[in-house]
Design a protein around this nucleic acid. Structure first.
Length: 478
RNA sequence: CGGGGUGUAGCGCAGUUGGCAGCGCACCGCGUUUGGGACGCGGGGGUCGGCGGUUCAAGUCCGCCCACCCCGACCA
């Protein structure tokens, strides 16, 4: 912890982001360029993300497994678009045990290929389908420019890989998982994402169709927060994933893949954080309540600590509680420290509270005096339960209001170009890659997604003026 | 890969003409403090990025190398 104030968001959002991560002890730079160490507090957030997602995966029939991190180079080359998309960013092992390898091994950038290979061995009959497997893993992509959590050489994620008998089932699965990501983002992380379809140029290398959830960060830039791909029969054909149907006919499977990574931690930081530091949604916060004892002398200390323990014990079974009993630090320092770490609710307990049988509660999402209330010990757990729920929904409301206030609906190309400076644009688009490229050249903004929620009707492409049936979101992205 | 920059304590930095390697924060000890970032006193911590050269003497001058950062290009 440092005594100095954070760089304010408005002054330099990137600098603010880096400082928050360091000071809240979420992650640190590793000795290898572009790699990060996820520290215990950051990993605890990831564990909460994992359990929220894993529960949803299991509820929809998926099971977990683990596949190797080394993939034969030749596997990557079997799907044309896939290898073209990933080859520039592969890490390759050429020596093992001091011997040059017969065939180089790729450190997985994603696992469609090796899982496809295994599926071709496992799937023989329509009775074997669907196969619904997820894995929690690390992957490596040799990126040029890296940012903690947002883009690192190695990152952690889950990747689901499923195989189905029909195109329709695969599409349903792809959309089901997109819905799960959306539900997770909105209801667990309080991040109001926009689900939609990726354009041809933005889709996953090797996919027939990609879906995404797009989130708006506090600087209005967009972040792709999770993706779900319908792979069609591309990988099934490349890896010969085939089954015999009811009529004894050999058929190719239809496969999907979907992933959400530690990048999502970056999304949480940049959606909710303020100039005091991190603000964590109560449902994912490793520590939901921190208790800060306050006293002047030994006599006060024993009274205060007795009540602190009473309060802690009454909350511990129901909430994630921490008592800050560190010595040699003033309460003021501790307040700032826990605000930096984004703990949603702080309880201050001092001699006055002992006397009144109450605690002073301070909400992280409402800074200063305004966020403070005196809570009686009587019924404290119930009061706090509803307070945490209020904080959770207040964060979602605030982020949603911010996002909606920064979405413009331009009618002309000139309006579109100015809209993407500091906002997102929702505009008619004809669907052509040329139009995307033109906007990107002129503004550096890209097509984020074609939202599932469409206005209907028809319009004119905001870029070329051709007839358009769909609106798309355009924005600068991380 | 092109352009620019930086390497000195954990972090941020200073180090003059070549002459005992320093400051702030952090850390450790003791005491006083404690309801919004406390203070005093004492203390520990260094391959000055690396290798070589010049010199009585190099953090400082010269050469080579390495690493990292920023801006472009490229990308989740």
């Amino acid at each position: 912890m440092s005594n100095e104030k954070l760089t304010p968001q408005r002054e330099n959002f990137s600098e603010w982001y880096n400082q928050v991560i360091q000071r809240a002890e979420l992650a640190d730079y590793a000795p290898v360029r572009g790699c990060m160490v996820v520290r215990p507090y950051g990993w605890a957030i990831w564990e909460n993300i994992q359990s929220a997602l894993d529960r949803r995966f299991k509820e929809t029939g998926h099971v977990n497994a683990a596949f190797p991190m080394f993939i034969p180079m030749s596997f990557l080359e079997k799907e044309k678009e896939h290898v073209e998309g990933f080859s520039p960013e592969l890490a390759v092992v050429t020596i093992g045990g001091g011997e040059k390898l017969e065939e180089p091994l790729v450190v997985r950038p994603t696992s469609e290929t090796i899982i496809g290979y295994m599926y071709s061995k496992w799937i023989k009959s329509y009775r074997d389908l669907p196969v619904l497997i997820n894995q929690w893993a690390n992957v490596v992509r040799w990126e040029m420019r890296t940012r903690l959590f947002l883009r690192t050489l190695e990152f952690y994620w889950q990747e689901g890989h499923t195989a189905h008998a029909t195109a329709q089932e695969a599409e349903e699965e792809t959309r089901r998982m997109l819905d799960i990501y959306t539900d997770f983002a909105v209801n667990e992380a309080a991040v109001p994402v926009i689900p939609g379809r990726k354009s041809e140029t933005e889709k996953f290398a090797g996919a027939a169709r990609s879906y995404t959830i797009e989130a708006m960060m506090g600087d209005t830039k967009a972040l792709q927060a999770g993706t779900s791909h319908n792979l069609g029969q591309n990988f099934a054909r490349a890896f010969e994933i085939q089954y015999l149907d009811e009529n004894n006919q050999l058929q190719y499977c239809w496969t999907t893949s979907w992933g959400l990574s530690t990048r999502f931690i970056g999304a949480i930081i940049m959606t909710h954080g303020d100039d005091q530091g991190l603000i964590l949604p109560p449902r994912l916060a490793p520590i939901q309540i921190v208790i800060v004892p306050i006293f002047k002398n030994d006599a006060e200390a024993s009274q205060v600590m007795e009540m602190v323990e009473e309060v802690r014990a009454s909350l511990a079974g129901r909430f994630r509680v921490r008592v800050d009993d560190r010595e040699g630090m003033t309460p003021g320092f501790k307040f700032n420290d826990w605000e930096m770490r984004g703990v949603p609710l702080r309880l201050e307990i001092g001699p006055k509270d002992v006397e009144k049988r109450s605690v002073m509660a301070a909400r992280r999402d409402i800074p200063g005096r305004e966020g403070k209330t005196i809570l009686p010990l009587e019924g404290l757990a119930e009061t706090i339960d509803s307070l945490l729920a209020q904080i959770q929904s207040a964060l979602l409301q605030r982020a949603t209001a911010f996002r909606d206030a920064h979405i413009l609906q331009p009618e002309s190309y000139a309006e579109l170009c100015s809209a993407v400076e500091g906002s997102w644009a929702l505009a008619w688009w004809c669907g052509s890659s040329e139009c995307e490229a033109r906007l990107k050249d002129d503004t550096r903004a890209t097509t984020r997604c074609i939202p599932l929620d469409q206005p209907g009707g028809e319009g004119r492409c905001c870029i070329c003026g051709a007839p358009a049936r769909e609106k798309a979101y355009f924005a600068k992205a991380y």
